[in-house]
Write a protein that binds this DNA or RNA. Structure first.
Lengths: 139, 139
DNA sequence: ATCGCTTTTGACCGAGAGCTTCACGAGCGA
DNA sequence: TCGCTCGTGAAGCTCTCGGTCAAAAGCGAT
């Protein structure tokens, strides 16, 4: 099971916005893209999806750009994954009625594990981990 | 994150072989395919991969077919997923060096959760669940 | 009002993967 | 030798993914 580059880009974008969140200012797409190593034109589409899901919001015109719609503590990795794909975990078997019920149960268990793990990772945690790592250099 | 139909087919195939495991006889591809609602010509390719990973084995000639190489209790859903794709969970971010380390940690946690969940589901369990369900009708 | 900045939207395209089918070769038993 | 089965490779088809581009639209400043 391979995760798409899109999910990765989306996570990077949200992390970038989260780092910038305390300033309260909007971040331009171009700056966000170059800071995270993501093609700007592609990032635009991802940001639009993030906005549609209420994760980010945008400001137009000069001094415009993107910022998070909620605090980083309120955004989980699962939210981001659901924003760019429909579901965190999906398989044709779950919607196939002539799939054996015991198998469907197995896929469901896998899905639940995935959902739970993704919901348990918030971007505030990631910010803290990054800060901890940086603190190492000062010791 | 979408799971391919191939993984589903592989799981069905192994479940079908597991049900037939106690007899010790080989199961023809055609029979296995029609029993599980899988295109036979495609199933062949999947079975070859399962065989290459030591999950199934084959017998040629008349009375030939496929059977499990180990007991159903020794085969986890993770084994099957790893047989048809390379990994249970993979993302370009994990091998991208200029991805933020805190993000890589997050993906790794997701991967671990997935691996653990997939390793914890054996086909013996699925057989038992199926048997339990069948017993319901006799009450 | 107009201009420059930004997001927004939609269309487009090439490459590759996934799914499926087919045809033919190879091993085994009668 | 014949019939049965697996084994293997190749082909086609569709669809998604990753990425680009251009034009529209909102906002602020001059």
């Amino acid at each position: 099971m391979k995760l798409s580059v899109k999910s990765d880009y989306a996570a990077r974008a949200v992390l970038g916005l989260a780092r910038h969140y305390p300033t309260g200012a909007a971040l331009r797409v171009e700056d966000l893209a170059s800071g995270q190593g993501v093609p700007a034109n592609y990032l635009v589409q991802i940001l639009i999806e993030l906005k549609a899901q209420g994760i980010a919001k945008s400001v137009r015109g000069k001094e415009g750009g993107y910022l998070l719609a909620r605090a980083p503590a309120e955004i989980s990795l699962g939210d981001v994954l659901r924003a760019v794909h429909g579901e965190v975990f999906d398989t044709p078997a779950l919607s196939d009625p002539n799939c054996a019920p015991e198998l469907r149960g197995a896929w469901q268990r896998l899905k639940d594990a995935m959902d739970k793990a993704a919901a348990g990772i918030t971007f505030q945690q990631l910010l803290d981990e990054g800060a901890d790592k940086e603190k190492m250099y000062y010791i």
